[in-house]
Computed example of a mutant assay.
Amino acid sequence: MGDDSAEKYERIHELLARVDRHEPDAFGDLVAVVYPELKRLAHFQLTREQPGHTLNTTAIVHEAYVRMASGAGRWDDRKHFLRAASAVMRHLLVDHARRKRADKRGSGNVLLELEESRVEGGDDSLAVLALDNALKDIAEIDPRLEQIIECRYFAGLSIDDTAEALGMSVRTVERDVQRARAYLVEAMGPDEH
């Protein structure tokens, strides 16, 4: 790890401690430092969506900021914070999919189309909801599998980074990724994974 990275990680550690002490502006300062990583997470999640999604990277990061700031939890380190942000972003996409489905059923909700929308395409809200339901089922069976899926597929962490973030061996993560994939394929069916 280079000097710049070491300084950045130390800065993040200090900011996390300030957030934990509920110091004014600490959460905003933390987000300013990790903003590029949050944008990368949001972009990574959007690449897994169907083209034509009405949310964009910036909107997801900003909404995640609002949700996380209002609950300002306790995060142990940078990876823990990014895992939590990734989970919030996943829930944002699920909530968005639910609103889209409700709107299609005539609920009267008005959806706001955001400026940086992607190319027109199909509706993936059913797949997002199916994935969310499958992840809830996995969490009931083995909460560790849900954490691994969030790290690997929602936060975009490598196997090694996932193992480090969760305090597990690389081999255990590799084995659990295979179990989780098998469960998701079975739970979601061949057309939705």
Rank of each mutant, 00 (worst) to 15 (best):
125 S>N: 02
97 A>V: 06
120 E>Q: 09
191 D>L: 08
165 A>V: 11
103 D>V: 06
75 W>N: 06
121 G>F: 00
135 L>R: 06
140 E>Q: 09
146 E>H: 09
11 R>D: 14
170 V>M: 09
158 S>R: 13
134 A>V: 13
52 G>L: 00
39 K>E: 15
8 K>E: 11
89 M>C: 10
55 L>I: 13
46 L>R: 11
22 H>P: 02
127 A>S: 10
153 Y>V: 04
53 H>Q: 05
33 V>G: 08
42 A>Q: 05
185 V>M: 10
101 R>Q: 13
107 S>H: 02
52 G>N: 06
77 D>A: 08
2 G>P: 06
145 L>Y: 01
5 S>L: 13
49 E>S: 12
60 I>S: 01
76 D>M: 01
187 A>P: 02
75 W>T: 05
22 H>M: 06
123 D>F: 04
104 K>Y: 09
59 A>S: 11
122 G>A: 14
47 T>C: 10
147 Q>K: 12
124 D>N: 14
64 A>I: 04
189 G>H: 04
31 V>T: 13
20 D>V: 00
46 L>W: 02
145 L>A: 03
16 L>W: 01
53 H>F: 06
27 F>W: 03
146 E>Y: 13
139 A>Q: 14
120 E>H: 10
101 R>Y: 10
20 D>K: 12
103 D>F: 00
169 S>Y: 05
186 E>Y: 06
173 V>W: 12
112 L>H: 06
101 R>W: 05
33 V>H: 08
110 V>H: 06
143 P>I: 11
77 D>F: 02
172 T>Q: 14
18 R>Q: 15
167 G>D: 07
5 S>H: 04
43 H>Y: 09
157 L>I: 05
183 Y>K: 12
175 R>L: 10
70 S>K: 12
77 D>R: 00
178 Q>K: 12
10 E>I: 02
44 F>Y: 15
99 R>M: 00
92 L>A: 02
123 D>M: 04
119 V>R: 15
99 R>N: 00
189 G>P: 03
46 L>I: 11
151 C>I: 06
75 W>C: 03
53 H>D: 07
142 D>I: 13
40 R>A: 15
51 P>N: 12
122 G>Q: 09
177 V>L: 03
130 A>V: 14
189 G>D: 07
193 H>F: 12
9 Y>T: 01
111 L>D: 07
143 P>S: 11
119 V>P: 04
12 I>P: 08
49 E>V: 08
67 R>D: 02
191 D>R: 05
77 D>H: 10
96 H>Q: 03
90 R>E: 01
145 L>D: 11
68 M>G: 03
55 L>Y: 04
119 V>Q: 14
11 R>T: 12
12 I>R: 06
138 I>F: 01
161 D>R: 15
59 A>C: 07
178 Q>H: 07
70 S>G: 15
91 H>V: 01
104 K>A: 15
116 E>P: 00
131 L>G: 05
74 R>M: 08
19 V>K: 05
45 Q>N: 09
144 R>Q: 13
144 R>M: 13
157 L>C: 05
8 K>A: 05
145 L>N: 07
